[in-house]
């Protein structure tokens, strides 16, 4: 679908069967995080930002929240946008 939009598509290093969760699946969206050094959505957003992509495409409202928060924590929200697939298609529809 993203190829149909003519996007230069890149995957993150941890993807598919080794994909890392945005954190909402572990309920990190709803509660305080477990003890550790870093929030999981920040970790995932750093990985996303390291690809150099200007758009982060998601297909889940909770991934959307977590990735947007992660991008904001890195103060990159002016350069990188997080969008749902439906929005990307709706922007380009005739």
């Amino acid at each position: 679908m993203l190829q149909a939009l003519d996007a230069d598509l890149v995957e993150m290093k941890r993807c598919r069967t080794t994909g890392l969760c945005c954190g909402a699946g572990g309920a990190q969206m709803f509660k305080e995080p477990e003890k550790g050094n870093k929030d999981i959505n920040v970790e995932r957003a750093e990985e996303a930002l390291s690809t150099g992509a200007k758009t982060i495409a998601v297909a889940c409202p909770f991934c959307m929240t977590m990735m947007t928060d992660g991008v904001k924590s890195k103060e990159k929200e002016a350069e990188v946008t997080v969008k749902d697939l439906a929005e990307l298609i709706a922007e380009s529809i005739k």
Binding site: A7, A48, I56, L88
Partner: peptide, 21 residues
């Protein structure tokens, strides 16, 4: 579309965050 109007390879990049669920 948002990708076609920006032709530079870096700026048109998009990544796919598939729901792990």
């Amino acid at each position: 579309g948002s990708f076609k109007e920006r032709k530079s390879p870096i700026t048109t990049r998009a990544i796919w965050v598939g729901p792990i669920i």
